[in-house]
Amino acid sequence: MMQILMFYPSAVIAVITTLMVIFSKNPVYAVLYLIMSLFAVSMVFWSLGSPFLAMVEIIIYAGAIMVLFLFVVMMLNLGQRRVDEDLRPPSGKALILPGIFATILLVQTIACLMAGHPQGGTQLLNDPVALGHAMYEKHYLGVKLAAIILLIGSIGGMHLGRAASFPDTKEKDLL
């Protein structure tokens, strides 16, 4: 019962805040809405039975990645700028086609799910130790790949960021 009480409000909050991200004018607000959305999703994880994943979601997504976003937004000082065209929420005209397609896609997804009557428990296995064992024993290759991706990401970020901090650098030095 507690789970149901947690799940559906969190889901509704997640959808609303996500919509707010898309339609907000100010990037700072948008980032904050996104953080709220992530909090809501982490509540969903908790309600599905895995406090560990909920914590991971909050710490890494909301805590690390979104803060990175916030830094950049503040660095670019976009919030203080007068509202340019590109910061305006998308108009109806720009929304028609993607809206239609996205709706079709959503209807299809739901139809598929309903038609399939997915069975099985909703209780997540919740043992971080077992999770760790499974990850490092069964999916060690994935761990390595993720590590390499992270390494490449950090190298790329450093390289591009260095060029960004020294504007005199010529483009050909970058590429």
């Binding site: 991706i149 992270l150 970020g157 960021g161």
Partner: peptide, 23 residues
């Protein structure tokens, strides 16, 4: 769950590079 954990570094790397490009 493990794949969810794998998504996290991918998202982090993507954000790092994306934001650097944005700058």
């Amino acid at each position: 769950q493990i794949f969810f954990i794998f998504i996290l570094p991918v998202a982090a790397a993507e954000v790092a590079i994306g934001l650097a490009l944005a700058l």
